[in-house]
Design a protein around this nucleic acid. Sequence first.
DNA 1: GTGGTCTAGACCACG
DNA 2: GTGGTCTAGACCACG
Lengths: 121, 121, 121, 121
Amino acid sequence: MNVTISSTSDKPIYQQLHEQISAQILGGELESGYCLPPIRQAALELHVSVITVKKAWEELERNGLIHTVTGKGCFVAEFSPDEMLRIRNEMVLKQMEGDIQYYKSFGLTLDEVIALLGKIY
Amino acid sequence: MNVTISSTSDKPIYQQLHEQISAQILGGELESGYCLPPIRQAALELHVSVITVKKAWEELERNGLIHTVTGKGCFVAEFSPDEMLRIRNEMVLKQMEGDIQYYKSFGLTLDEVIALLGKIY
Amino acid sequence: MNVTISSTSDKPIYQQLHEQISAQILGGELESGYCLPPIRQAALELHVSVITVKKAWEELERNGLIHTVTGKGCFVAEFSPDEMLRIRNEMVLKQMEGDIQYYKSFGLTLDEVIALLGKIY
Amino acid sequence: MNVTISSTSDKPIYQQLHEQISAQILGGELESGYCLPPIRQAALELHVSVITVKKAWEELERNGLIHTVTGKGCFVAEFSPDEMLRIRNEMVLKQMEGDIQYYKSFGLTLDEVIALLGKIY
DNA sequence: GTGGTCTAGACCACG
DNA sequence: GTGGTCTAGACCACG
């Protein structure tokens, strides 16, 4: 578990957790079959409530990224590299739609956005 | 006042208001010196609370986009086209930093981001 | 709110709540735009925790049956009779798949199932 | 022992075991007098806990499908084809009552249920 | 006043 | 020991 919780962020903790674990799974850092730490242990380590961890894990399961076995633990799901890429792009595109809406409201063209991105990526 | 409030959006109303007016000022739709409607009138028109409008106007003032003259009203600030562009890019870059952090957490390269943007912009 | 919670049932409370409200919406008992009682009030009435109600409402929202407006309340979503029928059948079919699996494991044919259903429906 | 355990299913393992053996007995696959494997051997074969197998066997005994002879083993009970059919229908009807309650809560008529069943059986 | 989030602690089923 | 559910109570943002 290599996760950082920011209490100053305006994002809820469970969402921070979900995003970071998602990224680690879809980025290949966590392999298929890997067993996440027990939710109670994760809660202790991260100094958050069990329920908060549970909420993050539930969202991971809804997205098909992990697979919970009661009494055993939570395991990273099995998928092919292609599937992984597809799911990753799906998640990123969903976020990107909102980002684009913001840029467009300021009248930015695609070229202007790309130019700005290039400066700070 | 040409503003659309979405109650289904997860963005708070005051932020929707702020973003749209910001975009209109920085996009040249609202000219320097233009007098925004009184908050009570705006609240009535948009069917939102006076507090909500006030919050949005305050944020506009903090960003230097309007200036309030007590007893007179709220006026769009004066700035040169260059200044306008600078402020716009400043606001967009601030948002973009967060967006990029998200993309990077998934291991996306700049080229991948540009490719995805091109698909849906 | 016309809901019955069974504490003897093996179904979790939040699921009982979700199923009953779903059925009421998709059965036309609760009209589009209807405002559900505040979650805290519902919790009091039903003698359950606020979080339990919240969990049920969240699932309703995920399924597109209600629409939450922070600070206002939770409203039954708008959909045409056709849409309502489609969503209803979708939910029922999902449940039915599991039921059928059970019947088939006992070697029952469709005709036998229909015969048994006819006796006790 | 021809049994498949799914760890992804939300059904507890002992119930999966119970259902599958029940179905095999009532479907005639396992004949009267057949001796089920010792629980320790079954547990090994299926990679599940001894407790889990015991729980399933107990449930089978409660339903009169097997009888345990201490020191000898667990044997499939003797019953006539008629009895077998009666027990099977009893078990199926018990399950079906719950299913019907669900369908009815959505306002489905018997004809609608039959129509949906026909589509996916 | 409304929903959103979080906590600490509890009891349960499964294995 | 693992996850699943639930509670009572708290503080916050939005309006």
